[in-house]
Design a protein around this nucleic acid. Structure first.
Lengths: 146, 146
DNA sequence: CGCGATACATAAGGAGCTTATATATGTCCG
DNA sequence: CGGACATATATAAGCTCCTTATGTATCGCG
């Protein structure tokens, strides 16, 4: 009672993700791409270095990703007034719109499924979200130390 | 009270996945690769066609993936006695071991994080897992119809 | 038996990652 | 205050893994 089995958690997440991860986005954007857009929405303009820490990808990989995003008009590179070496990655309006569209798409797909759950199931998931979020935070922390 | 907001769900999952998805595996195996191994573990030998339905990837993509898995000894192709056109993909012992190793790795990484949650948080997550699993099933169903 | 459907494979090309390395700017110490 | 080391980003080369288009073999059925 009250025990959280790690295998149960990973199995459930794995099953959920098998469906969820593949949810097509409006344009075909990679997981990492969307993760970067998310990071910029919630945290404002960021240096490449900061993004490298949270997105688990190499620095050159991120440079290239930002280059692609810039080419597609979703993002802008601006110099950091405080540091001549650094670049601040700004989200453009188009970038914000794409992210929103993706969010809407997911809502459109998930809402009818959620409607088919029982009230108890909905309640159970809702109650778990804060804890899941905290788990992710702890994970990010642990990652940052290493 | 009791309402499950779609945006809250996707946000929480997104945050969790940002950490979780990138958890390095023993060898560097892609998300799709592991998903296929999972499918074979839980469902036994399968035709390529069956796998194409659940793994959201093109048929040639899956053929290539299975070829790589076979090259790495994780999987074997055997003829389907019932249908000369078909191939049955069997998991090898090595494949099973790799999947188990990945599971262990995740356990090793997640367990200390889970230990830092409060009992209430652990309970909340544990209670949500059946509902999450059902949500994934509903998603897979919906997908299959389309 | 032969024709459309089904199961899988092959080919060509591109996206997106990796490691190794280059370039520019900042920091700090003697 | 000049040079050495550190930091922030970019470039290059290469590989993995996906895509679409197409080929080949077997099945099922009139």
């Amino acid at each position: 009672m009250g025990g959280l089995n790690v295998v149960d958690l990973t199995t459930a997440i794995e099953n959920f993700n098998r469906y969820y991860i593949r949810l097509p986005s409006v344009q075909q954007l990679s997981f990492t791409t969307l993760s970067v857009l998310d990071a910029l929405v919630s945290g404002g303009p960021k240096r490449l270095t900061e993004l490298v820490k949270t997105e688990q990808i190499s620095q050159p990989g991120l440079t290239q990703l930002v280059t692609r995003l810039e080419r597609d008009g979703l993002v802008e590179r601006r110099p950091d007034p405080a540091d001549g070496r650094a670049v601040l990655v700004h989200l453009t309006e188009a970038g914000r719109a794409v992210r929103q569209a993706r969010q809407d798409e997911r809502e459109r797909r998930l809402a009818p499924l959620i409607a088919r759950l029982t009230p108890g199931e909905r309640e159970a998931i809702a109650s778990a979200l804060p804890a899941l979020t905290r788990l992710a935070e702890l994970g990010a922390e642990a990652e940052a130390q290493a």
